[in-house]
Nucleic acid binder design. Structure first.
Length: 897
RNA sequence: GGGCGGGUAGCUCAGUUGGGAGAGCAUCGGCCUUACAAGCCGGGGGUCACAGGUUCAAGCCCUGUUCCGCCUACCA
């Protein structure tokens, strides 16, 4: 029996470890490939294998876990597919750093050895974040854990690459791409983060060949002038009329470059003359192509000036900028320098300033894929929630540009393309061909580039389920039910999964996309290591427990708004967990020998409190269900919080205490609880706690499991229990109305006690007068309850009549309440209290009076609204009259004590 | 430049057909009342950013202004 009792304070650490191990051991997280149940599936946004759990992960995975546990309890066949992402650049960076410490680099050990070492690193540290997810309580189907570099997923990547190539949707070509000189790789447009930078606009004079005047150009990047091959002006620009085809002398390089006319040039900007560097600027490159301009690269892969940069060769690009400016100034060709703010691209992995760089790369032709992905959202095949993101999605999809997918790193999926060294034939295939299909030679060299990590991530919803094989998992679980992710990877990942899913699976990858907000610090700033404002989820879990943490995240997860998190808030919700724990502790004290009895369900026996709490919990079931179905996690969490704390604990438990302790006063004065009342109360207490735990489980799995385990009459894990369903029969308007009256009267009495500074140790005599027969009957029937909750000596219920002397007064509905304060009443205090009340009522009455004297309101507003206002006015008027009567009585006494 | 979101109590925020301004925290007062001081009871606190408009009625709908945040963009 003592095993049923709970310790005085909830201690999460041990409980969490124990139950997680149990769930895993019992395989409660497994999805079934073959099942009669309806499927529900989620693929996890794979965290970087280099990652450690941060707030974003915690929030994201809490939401997913709530959904999975909820659906599982509703009887769905749930698959939550977990795994990690090989994170090409990030992982390579980590391992390279390790090498650097040993005085080595990847080139010194070679590609094969390097990749081997990355794998070793992954074996050793790659499981870290997975373990951390377990601390959070994530109910992923761990047996299915995938990694983007697994053999199966790699096969999927090769298959997709080959097919897209064959379909003409992948091509190789020379274009300007974003180059990170530190990572020494190309980046996609998305991987570049733009930041406003306070730079300069340099005005440089390019003289004519005869050394005269010339043209002044404006640039933010003077170092690129070394690679200029033209100067462009707008053909409509009068200032430059007649100069088409003339030649300018490029300063510092002493190279002749032509003046060309091109509509692209903005006459209003700078001098209206634009220097053209086709090798280092995407627009210049386009113009260069149009005009057949020479292309001269002056910056190398390492960000240093190359052999075409003349005397600046070997200089870092920024160092070179300074020196070019100096040199121009010396030659008198620097006209002026203006402060100029412009945005500069940075590598999203290492923050290095990105260099627009001409090189041969592989691209996906995205337009045709995007079209289908747009339609899928337009038709509702996939819903984006909240809807505001739909517009952003369309915006990007409609303006999408080809996707650079090749990366010049070693860790990743190597592009399955081979070039024949004999005849130059390019072969794209699943595996290395035996011989060149063109010349039958065997000098085939594989492409050294690897693919963008997001390329493999784009396949995640089906590659994890076994594609390209036609698996039972795919049949059962594709498309997934919902994708839960942050808006920061809407384009990176969501959009690309949509495209790939539609193209290769002929169906969307997910029915719903739930986009959640970011977790920020208490001031609303993005958490970052450099700012030092990160809160470590593992620290939080250790200190407050995973449940408190999860509930906090859920309670703050309002759609479309960022979560500002601070430890205080988590601590607040730890109090909630503790409250639940203690309420359960109380219940279990009285339920230790409880046995489920059919007789207990006889509604005839239910007390008002019983009917009320059952009606209330039914309302909560409805709210929680609707909220979760709509991804309104905060609404669900808040309604549970409100119910548990302020309805179950504050009222129901307090009301049934006398029954459970056997101290109910009977009409003849005896103190005892009838056996049937006791049994019924225990039944309702038991079933309410039982149901509350089930409602709470998706949010706070550990503590609910622990209490569930101790609760008599439950079997097995709460994970397998049924999620509560609404039963209309429990809705009880009458009980809720009656309780509203009782709660009102009790609150009014407590209010007087509080305001009049009556110590709790004093038990008072109280009279409630009411003309309403039903109300009087109700109060009489629940006299004991009121006496108990208000710490009264006695409670008289009477028709309106004489005012008891030395009383403080309050009016609630049809009830006038007199709390006898013989000997302790402070008449001045009472006058002040009544006056305050009167003022409040008067103010409300003013507003109502205005409405009721407004002809238009009476004529145009719906009759039920008018009626409601009339009734309210009547009630308030009565209340005001009564209060004023009391005030005048009290004033008389105060005046003549 | 384009787009999106937000400005409601001291703080953080709810407020889903326009008809009673709410919660949590903080604060103040009173309580160790037999589940819980990680608690109980009670109180105070808001021209719902500003200005117009629609309406009998606006925190909610429309227009404009302003401040803050974010996303996006090839304006040298």
């Amino acid at each position: 029996m003592s095993s049923h009792l709970l310790k005085k304070g909830y201690e999460p650490q041990e409980v969490e470890r124990r139950w997680y191990a149990y769930w895993e051991k019992e395989s409660l997280f497994s999805g079934e490939d073959v099942s009669d149940k309806k499927p529900f599936s989620i693929v996890i946004p794979p965290p970087n294998v280099t990652g450690v759990l941060h707030m974003g992960h915690a929030h994201n995975n809490t939401v997913q876990d709530i959904l999975c546990r909820y659906r599982r309890m509703q009887g769905y066949n749930v698959l939550w597919m977990p795994g990690t992402d090989h994170a090409g650049i990030a992982t390579q960076n980590v391992v390279e750093k390790g090498l650097a410490q040993e005085g080595k680099n990847r080139h010194s050990i070679g590609r094969e050895e390097f990749v081997k070492q990355v794998w070793q690193w992954r074996e050793k540290y790659g499981g870290l974040i997975i373990n951390q997810l377990k601390h959070l309580g994530a109910s992923c189907d761990w047996a299915r854990e995938r990694f983007t570099m697994d053999e199966g997923l790699s096969k999927a990547v090769r298959t997709v690459f080959v097919k897209l190539y064959e379909q003409g949707l992948i091509y190789q070509g020379d274009y300007i791409i974003n180059w990170c000189p530190r990572c020494r790789t190309a980046l996609s447009d998305l991987e570049v983060e733009h930041e406003d930078h306070n730079g300069h606009l340099y005005y440089i004079r390019y003289p004519f060949q005869n050394k005269k005047r010339g043209i002044v150009v404006a640039t933010t990047r003077p170092e690129t002038m070394l690679g200029d091959t033209a100067v462009a002006v707008n053909p409509n620009d009068k200032r430059y009329r007649g100069l088409d085809g003339k030649t300018l002398m490029l300063p510092l390089m002493n190279r002749g470059i032509p003046i060309i006319f091109d509509e692209y040039v903005d006459m209003k900007f700078g001098t209206g003359a634009l220097k053209i560097t086709p090798a280092h600027d995407p627009n210049d490159f386009e113009i260069g192509l149009r005009r057949n301009l020479a292309i001269i690269k002056v910056i190398g892969k390492d960000g240093r000036m190359n052999e075409h940069a003349g005397r600046f060769q070997g200089k870092d690009r920024f160092e070179c900028r300074e020196e070019v400016v100096q040199a121009l100034r010396k030659e008198g060709l620097l006209e002026k320098v203006e402060a100029y703010q412009h945005s500069v691209g940075h590598c999203y992995r290492c923050r290095t300033t990105v260099e627009p760089y001409l090189s041969k790369q592989w691209f996906v032709r995205v337009k045709p894929l995007a079209e289908k992905a747009i339609v899928a959202v337009q038709t509702g095949a996939t819903r984006i929630i909240p809807d505001t993101w739909t517009k952003t999605y369309f915006e990007w999809m409609n303006n999408i540009k080809d996707w650079c997918i090749s990366r010049q790193i070693w860790w990743g999926h190597r592009i399955p393309a081979w070039t024949c060294e004999n005849c130059g034939e390019m072969i794209v295939a699943m595996a290395r061909p035996a011989v060149c299909p063109a010349c039958e030679g065997n000098a085939l060299v594989q492409e050294t580039d690897v693919l963008d990590t997001w390329f493999s991530s784009a396949l995640w919803p089906f590659s994890t389920m076994g594609w390209p094989d036609s698996t039972q998992t795919l049949k059962t679980f594709y498309p997934s039910s919902v994708l839960v992710t942050g808006f920061d990877i809407l384009f990176f990942w969501v959009a690309r999964m949509m495209m790939m899913g539609l193209h290769f699976m002929k169906d969307v990858p997910f029915r719903d996309v739930y986009i959640h907000a970011l977790v920020r610090d208490a001031e609303g700033k993005k958490m970052s290591k450099s700012k030092g404002n990160v809160i470590d989820p593992l620290y939080v879990i250790d200190k407050y427990g995973a449940d408190a943490f999860r509930f906090t995240l859920a309670a703050f997860a309002a759609q479309g708004r960022d979560i500002k998190l601070s430890e205080d808030r988590i601590e607040g919700y730890r109090h909630f967990i503790n409250k639940l724990w203690n309420a359960s502790r109380f219940a279990l004290m009285h339920l230790s020998d409880f046995e489920y009895e059919e007789s207990g369900q006889d509604t005839q026996d239910f007390s008002l409190a019983d009917k009320w709490i059952l009606s209330r919990i039914n309302g909560v079931v409805e709210t929680v269900t609707e909220s979760l179905d709509d991804y309104r996690f905060n609404d669900a969490a808040n309604s549970l919080f409100q119910f548990v704390w302020h309805e179950l604990c504050d009222w129901y438990l307090e009301m049934v205490k006398p029954v459970l302790y056997g101290t109910v006063a009977l009409s003849d004065g005896a103190i005892e609880t009838s056996p049937s009342r006791y049994a019924t109360t225990r039944f309702v207490l038991w079933s309410t706690l039982n149901e509350t735990l089930r409602l709470l489980h998706p949010f706070i799995p550990f503590v609910t499991e622990e209490i569930w385990d101790k609760l008599p009459g439950t079997e097995g894990s709460i994970m397998k229990a049924e999620f509560p369903v609404i039963s209309e029969g429990r809705n009880n308007r009458e009980a809720e109305d009656a309780m509203r009256v009782l709660i009102g009267v009790v609150s009014a009495i407590r209010n007087i006690r509080g305001e009049m500074n009556v110590p709790p140790s004093l038990f008072l005599e109280t009279t409630v007068q009411s003309p309403d027969k039903g109300v009087k009957e109700l109060l009489k029937q629940h006299r004991d309850m009121i006496v108990n909750l208000c710490r009264l000596k006695s409670l008289q219920v009477a028709p309106p009549g004489e005012r008891p002397t030395s009383s403080a007064t309050s009016v609630f509905g049809a009830c006038t309440i007199f709390v006898s304060l013989k000997g302790i009443i402070d008449f001045e205090l009472e006058q002040a209290r009544l006056s305050k009340d009167i003022t409040k009522v008067s103010r409300e009455l003013d507003g109502i009076g205005k409405k009721l004297t407004n002809e238009d309101f009476l004529r145009k507003a719906p009759q039920e609204v008018v009626q409601k206002v009339r009734e309210k006015g009547k009630r308030l008027m009565e209340k005001k009259n009564k209060l004023e009567n009391h005030l005048s009585t009290v004033s008389q006494i105060a005046g003549n004590p």
